[in-house]
């Protein structure tokens, strides 16, 4: 099917872009890589009178590592992240999650900002942002603001962004070493959105005990979710893989809006999610211990 007709805008200046969004109101939608928006338009699941393309907007693409933070501009493609040495060294969790997104022909167009703003419940980047305590930088006609990841994702395909607000960048704090990261997910076919997945980050203190820990699950509710109770249990403990099963059970125990469809019941997804937490935990701990 063909998308419904729309007016096309390709502004250059970020301020001009948000002013345009404000003027056009809910008739307008931002177009970044188009890898989620264009399928929705093609299937006529959505239609907008105006698309505002970010491809020419200045200052939006780019990756920089400065002051203990990796800052990635919103229109940086997933392919650019995949090829970035800076991301591999300073934000390994993001680097490892990237090849799990669709296929390389999708990642060549799909953007970091698009993934985060689209906020699919089973998407990898929102879970990574939540795990690393990322800060999301935005611009609207009212100015710039920064939103912590745990307040950004508000529901299925919905975020804290206003209609006339652009996501401009995501800032990922670099974790001190020794540290370990892992992502694990189960999808029905390579490249599909995951049925359930988990991201884990572990940091060790000078005494080689866990002094920082973040566990998130995705695909198991409308938004990715941190397993705060499990994390609290783990601080101060020795980094071992033995407890992986208990940690995993604790991580999924509180989930109460797990989706169910013909691909799997809620109970099944929870079990898969727990298995992914356990798998990611083992990988992350092994990496931290040898870091």
């Amino acid at each position: 099917m063909k998308p419904a007709a729309f007016e096309y805008h390709a502004p250059v200046d970020p301020e001009e872009t948000v002013a345009l969004l404000a003027r056009l109101g809910d008739e307008a939608k931002v177009l970044a890589g188009g890898q989620s928006l264009v399928p929705m338009l093609a299937l006529r699941l959505a239609a907008f009178g105006h698309l505002v393309d970010l491809r020419r907007v200045k200052g939006l693409p780019g990756i920089e590592h400065r002051g203990g933070v990796v800052r990635i501009g919103a229109t940086t493609t997933q392919a650019a992240v995949e090829r970035s040495d800076v991301v591999r060294d300073a934000a390994p969790l993001l680097a490892r999650a990237t090849p799990l997104i669709g296929h390389f022909q999708i990642r060549s167009r799909g953007t970091v900002g698009g993934s985060l703003a689209h906020a699919d419940a089973a998407a990898e980047y929102p879970a990574v942002a939540l795990t690393l305590d990322a800060r999301l930088e935005t611009l609207s006609p009212r100015g710039r603001r920064t939103v912590p990841a745990d307040r950004f994702f508000t529901g299925t395909w919905s975020t804290d962004l206003a209609e006339d607000e652009l996501l401009t960048a995501v800032a990922l704090p670099v974790w001190h070493r020794p540290r370990g990261f892992a992502v694990a997910e189960f999808a029905r076919r390579s490249g599909d959105f995951a049925l359930a997945g988990a991201t884990v980050a572990v940091g060790l203190g000078p005494d080689r005990r866990i002094d920082r820990c973040a566990i998130a699950v995705f695909g198991l509710g409308p938004v990715p979710c941190r397993a705060r109770a499990a994390e609290r249990e783990l601080i101060g403990r020795e980094p071992t893989t033995e407890a992986a099963g208990d940690i995993a059970d604790l991580a999924v125990s509180g989930l109460d809006s797990v989706p169910a469809d013909l691909h799997g019941s809620a109970g099944y997804r929870k079990r898969v999610g727990a298995a992914m937490v356990a798998r990611a935990w083992r990988h992350a701990v092994r990496e931290a211990v040898h870091d």
Partner: peptide
């Protein structure tokens, strides 16, 4: 498929493989 799933429409855009059905 015309919605990004099958890959039949793949072309190179500035050297990178893309879905031509997902690019205007």
């Amino acid at each position: 498929c015309e919605h990004g799933v099958c890959g039949a429409c793949t072309v190179l855009l500035d050297g990178e493989a893309v879905r031509a059905c997902l690019v205007f």
